[in-house]
């Protein structure tokens, strides 16, 4: 899968966990998801679960930096790191 395809899948997932009062339409890769109010900080847990299930990422092996889950771009970087290694 290309980065663009991963991105589409990710946006689809983020829409399923978006805050009720803030719909995700267009989101920039460097835009902070929490600061811009698109998701709340606890949605990071669901992002972790999503990455574990969809990409078999084992966060238990490394210290998780919640900051790495803050933008679409940084989440895609994690996916790329795992899928190419």
């Amino acid at each position: 899968m290309s980065r663009q395809q991963h991105r589409e899948e990710l946006i689809k997932f983020l829409r399923s966990i978006q805050r009720r009062d803030s719909a995700i339409k267009e989101v920039d890769d460097s835009q902070s998801l929490v600061e811009s109010g698109l998701i709340d900080s606890l949605a990071a847990l669901q992002i972790v679960s999503y990455l574990e299930e969809a990409y078999k990422i084992d966060f238990g092996d490394n210290a998780i930096d919640p900051g790495d889950l803050r933008t679409v771009g940084t989440i895609l970087d994690i996916i790329e790191r795992v899928t190419t290694s």
């Binding site: 829409r15 399923s16 966990i17 805050r19 009720r20 719909a23 606890l42 949605a43 669901q46």
Partner: peptide, 13 residues
């Protein structure tokens, strides 16, 4: 509270 919030997520306001 977290469980309740999770249920509500993704729904339109």
């Amino acid at each position: 509270s977290m469980l309740r919030q999770q249920k509500k997520r993704g729904r339109a306001a």
